[in-house]
């Protein structure tokens, strides 16, 4: 379980988040939605410790990880799929996956399940990450984040720039993964959010303006909040 309590974040002095509270439970897919530039990706970066967070607290299974450096947070059990995927382009697919195992010394070999989930990766194991298509890179990014068997998986716009068939595939994969871990996802694609998520947080100008179970949310209001 991942809990954010009154987290603030700032880029070189100017505040972007003003006290964000989010809880992501194991067994659920929690979505964070909102318009461009309201601080969704910053929230993700705050969880990973990639932006400065002057105040608040972040807890993983009740233990604070707020003051830990980024790599320790990964080791504590957070898997991160960033916006734009951030595959290492010069490294092979295999090396990318092996790097994902850095966070958990208990995982010695690449778990074979990952190739059942993403068969394409097995085929391209020796290719360079940069040579893969966008959808393939997204699958690799998810694989890389989950091989370490994290307690929480956070995904930043996993459907961005990806063809519909792969989006469906990603939806199936994360729905399957949620029984083992808490999933927190930033997403703009509303249909996808309504389809896969259990809980929803809406963000406006660095604050959470609306939250609740996805099936109980006022869809029209949600639509209105997200439309330009």
């Amino acid at each position: 379980m991942l809990e954010l309590e009154k987290v603030t974040a700032a880029y070189s002095g100017s505040k972007v988040l003003f006290g964000v509270d989010i809880t992501a439970n194991k067994g659920e897919i929690t979505c964070l939605v909102g318009r461009n530039g309201v601080g969704k990706s910053t929230t993700m970066k705050a969880i990973m410790g990639l932006v400065s967070t002057p105040s608040g607290d972040i807890k993983l299974d009740g233990k604070s990880i707020f003051t830990l450096p980024t790599y320790s947070r990964a080791k504590a059990g957070i898997g991160y799929v960033p916006q734009g995927r951030e595959i290492f382009p010069q490294l092979t697919v295999k090396e990318n996956i092996l790097l994902g195992m850095e966070a958990n010394p208990g995982v010695k070999e690449i778990p074979q399940e990952i190739f059942e989930t993403f068969p394409i990766l097995k085929e391209f194991l020796e290719r360079r990450g940069g040579d893969l298509s966008g959808g393939q890179q997204q699958q690799l990014a998810i694989a890389r984040a989950v091989v370490s068997k994290p307690k929480v998986l956070i995904l930043d716009e996993p459907t961005e720039g990806i063809q519909p068939s792969v989006i469906q595939e990603i939806g199936r994969v994360i729905t399957r993964l949620k029984k083992d871990m808490a999933i927190l996802m930033v997403e703009q694609y509303l249909e996808f959010v309504l389809e896969v998520s259990d809980r929803c947080y809406v963000m406006e100008k660095g604050r959470i303006s609306m939250s609740g179970r996805t099936d109980e949310l006022d869809k029209d209001r949600l639509q209105q909040l997200l439309s330009m």
């Binding site: 990973m48 990639l50 450096p69 790599y71 990964a74 960033p82 850095e102």
Partner: peptide, 8 residues
């Protein structure tokens, strides 16, 4: 940043 996010 990504390397650190993976636990390096």
């Amino acid at each position: 940043e990504m390397a650190a996010s993976l636990g390096v």
